[in-house]
Design a protein around this nucleic acid. Sequence first.
DNA 1: ACTTGATGTGTGGTATACCATATACAAATG
DNA 2: CATTTGTATATGGTATACCACACATCAAGT
Lengths: 238, 238
Amino acid sequence: MSISDKLSPIAENFSLKSHTFELLRAAILDMDIYRPDVDLRLDERKLAEKLGVSRTPIREALAQLAQEGLVHIVARKGVFVCRKTREEILEMVVTWAALESMAARLATQNASDAELQALRDFAIEHSSDVERADLEEYSDANIVFHQTILELSGCQLLKKMADTLFTHMQAVRRRAMGESDRARRSVADHMGIIDALITRDADLASRRVREHTMRLHDHIAKTWSRIEALGSWRDLAS
Amino acid sequence: MSISDKLSPIAENFSLKSHTFELLRAAILDMDIYRPDVDLRLDERKLAEKLGVSRTPIREALAQLAQEGLVHIVARKGVFVCRKTREEILEMVVTWAALESMAARLATQNASDAELQALRDFAIEHSSDVERADLEEYSDANIVFHQTILELSGCQLLKKMADTLFTHMQAVRRRAMGESDRARRSVADHMGIIDALITRDADLASRRVREHTMRLHDHIAKTWSRIEALGSWRDLAS
DNA sequence: ACTTGATGTGTGGTATACCATATACAAATG
DNA sequence: CATTTGTATATGGTATACCACACATCAAGT
């Protein structure tokens, strides 16, 4: 191990573009875009000034964010943070269900007994979060649970696409996971999923994951009529 | 209908960036990136000169293409067209199966009888292509068939993500759909899928779509050992 | 009062200049 | 001859200047 081995990662693959991209991405995901009074417009020059860089890397980062669907760029009008409609959110959940149910199917085939056992232990351990009404904690565990299934599928693309959907729904999730009876149901669902995985029942695991996620879908469909009223960037297209 | 309705789309939402993006995208998808001798490097200045624009829109378009996974940008090294490994291609097929099987499930619920009947007619009509050994024609019909299922799901996100995967596999598909016995099997599969859709059997339709697509997966897994040898952009990361 | 047009300002789109690094090659050194 | 080091050049990264358009404001005319 020479000294160069330790130093090489420094400044490797760094650029203001990618740095700006990460920064803006995090900032956008962090903001509560569904509050009616937030300003969705992003001013390139102000962003450039705030970040202490020129407009060029800002614009390149924004182009990437637009490709990812986080912002919407209208030529000669401006760039706006994308506020998702209720229908778009529902579609994201459906697509997520599609990806994760396939992941579960693959996991029955690719995951080791040890990995599944570890997942089971983890789920049991955090099931008490719900009893203690520690929903914050459980929400995190819940995310880890689902990410683990994607991971155990062995298909990186499935995980990557699901992760993208996940981050898009981050602002939404803060509100979705609400009442403790939904959490309680969630715990039961998770145990059912794990059982199916451990018994290597691909069809059952796949089905249970799908139905579990679709319950979230139905819940959002029923309880979220208000986002609709806020409108989205589409209103700008006259 | 006033005259302004007809004229409004002119120059609406046009920018050299988006134009360049489309152009480069089409060009990349059109090139046969798996020939060992092709140059995967894209020179910004040469591209700018060829397209008669400055580097700025080129770079913004390239940033978007990188986000989509079509090219890989290495800081201060260059931008290279992404050559997919066999494993990545297989993962794309798996993910595609996940998306389309969910689409089929939804289609049993959302598609009208008329739409399914039209799909059936279309499939029957083009089943003769295989008999006539017109695989070119059948390949196109095959694509339309699958796109229609995505369409009938009523979930635009499913279709959009599947379409993205589709275009990524375009260069691959030219080689995959080969022997006529695979095409014949494909016809039978399609009819089975349509039957399941018409009888509104969600589980069956979903399963048949998945198994149909996974047959392509297994076929690629068996017959494509050579792409592996070509290497990819990853070789550039020393 | 309403419409229409001129004008000014702000913002995004594009071009270009300049900087830093990677790379190749040449020259120097042992 | 091998190794190293300087240097030239090409190329990507960044900053900046400038342009065109959108929009607001206001003035003039009807």
